[in-house]
């Protein structure tokens, strides 16, 4: 079973969010970057588990520049067999999806796994776009995934419950919480990652269809209005008369 896991780079969850250049660029000063949690914790680990069950290989793919190599090595340390980096810094989801699809089309993967969304741009777009561009079946926000030779059985979140679906491979699946338990790389994995192949391939030249004009920080919250613990009725009154939410 040949599995592709798409990984992206994201700012650490505690990173301070600030902008430069007249609020048109994310200020990366002092920001620590990590593998996007959905990609690492769920998509990658489930990919590795499926390989352990069925044999085969797990390739991780990132569309990005050499700055991303440390997070790609992290994925190799967790257990991926090899990595591919498509050498361009994508500026929107459609551009990244086109690069992923153009590369993956010729590689004969049985399964393409992605995260549910990146925690920086929160797009939740690329998985479905790749599926459409490759004309493959797609399941979004999957919480459970099992495979046999030619079919995948997947549970996905829907309004008020879970839907269990079956589809034939090759297929594209985006992973949400529940699909696997995060793994921490061990010393052996970290050592092995240094010598695993990280192949850099040229981009196909796809262009972006959107541009970010500007960023804004949310308006500061006013002072907290404290209510005495012995007089909680006042809170109900304020929620009704002042905040007008009940």
């Amino acid at each position: 079973m040949k599995i592709l896991v798409c990984i992206s780079k994201a700012p650490d969850t505690t990173a301070k969010i600030a902008f430069t250049n007249n609020n048109t660029e994310f200020d990366t000063n002092g920001v620590q970057f990590i593998v996007n949690p959905y990609d690492e914790w769920y998509a990658l680990v489930r990919g590795l588990e499926l390989k352990e069950q069925h044999s085969g290989s797990v390739t991780v793919l990132n569309v990005g520049t050499a700055e991303n190599d440390p997070i790609i090595r992290k994925a190799l340390a967790i257990g991926a067999d090899e990595a591919v980096r498509i050498d361009v810094n994508p500026t929107d989801a459609l551009q990244a999806a086109k690069e992923i699809a153009t590369y993956a089309k010729t590689q004969g993967f049985d399964l393409l796994l992605l995260g549910k969304e990146t925690i920086d741009y929160n797009g939740s777009q690329i998985g479905a776009m790749v599926a459409e561009l490759m004309d493959l079946p797609y399941v979004s926000l999957a919480t459970k995934l099992d495979m046999n030779e030619t079919t995948a059985t997947v549970s996905r979140d829907i309004q008020g419950g879970t839907e269990v679906v079956e589809l034939s491979t090759p297929a594209v699946i985006s992973a949400a919480k529940g699909m696997a338990e995060a793994r921490i790389p061990n010393m052996r994995g970290i050592m092995a990652a240094r010598t695993k192949p990280l192949n850099v391939v040229a981009a196909s030249g796809a262009s972006a269809s959107t541009t970010i004009s500007s960023y804004e920080l949310p308006p500061a919250k006013g002072e907290c209005h404290y209510i005495d613990a012995d007089n909680v009725g006042e809170l109900i009154e304020l929620l009704h008369n002042e905040a007008k939410v009940i």
Binding site: P11, T13, I17, F19, I119, D120, Y121, N122, A208, S209, T210, T211, I212, S213, S214, Y215, E216, L217, P218
Partner: peptide
């Protein structure tokens, strides 16, 4: 306009197509 960085900021995104 959409929220980015998990609600810690907003981005104004122009669609060019």
């Amino acid at each position: 306009r959409k929220a980015v960085f998990s609600g810690k900021a907003f981005a104004n995104i122009t669609i060019n197509t």
